[in-house]
Design a protein around this nucleic acid. Structure first.
Length: 99
DNA sequence: CGTAGGGCCCTAC
DNA sequence: CGTAGGGCCCTAC
């Protein structure tokens, strides 16, 4: 399994209503300082309906980017029960999934 | 083969 | 708050 497949598979562990960060996901697949690699892989996500890349956000609590637009990412997260105020996730620590 | 460049970032100031 | 620099992996020369 190549890196991308491992990343997509690992991300499936993150349930609806929770989020992870680019850095955490990088660590989860054994990458050090691989945040940007994760971002790139998310951008190339060929299975947007299956792999929940909208649940990957920035460690600062901001939403981060999204191939189809940040407002869509924001809406998807809201629909899953994640509250977002002024572009930042409320109760970030409580929503953060631990691999 | 080697390497430059870039990406949905992170940390420290 | 903003910004600079870093660091990793892939892709295209």
């Amino acid at each position: 399994m190549n890196l991308e497949q491992r990343v997509y598979k690992k991300l499936l562990d993150v349930p609806k209503g929770q989020i992870t960060t680019y850095g955490e996901l990088a660590k989860a697949v054994g990458l050090k300082n691989g945040q940007r690699v994760i971002g790139k892989i998310m951008n190339n996500n060929p299975y947007p309906a299956i792999v929940p890349c909208h649940r990957v956000v920035m460690s600062t609590g901001k939403i981060g980017g999204y191939a189809y637009g940040e407002h869509i990412k924001t809406k998807m997260l809201s629909d899953e029960g994640i509250e977002i105020k002024n572009g930042k996730i409320s109760s970030f620590d409580k929503k953060l999934f631990r691999f």
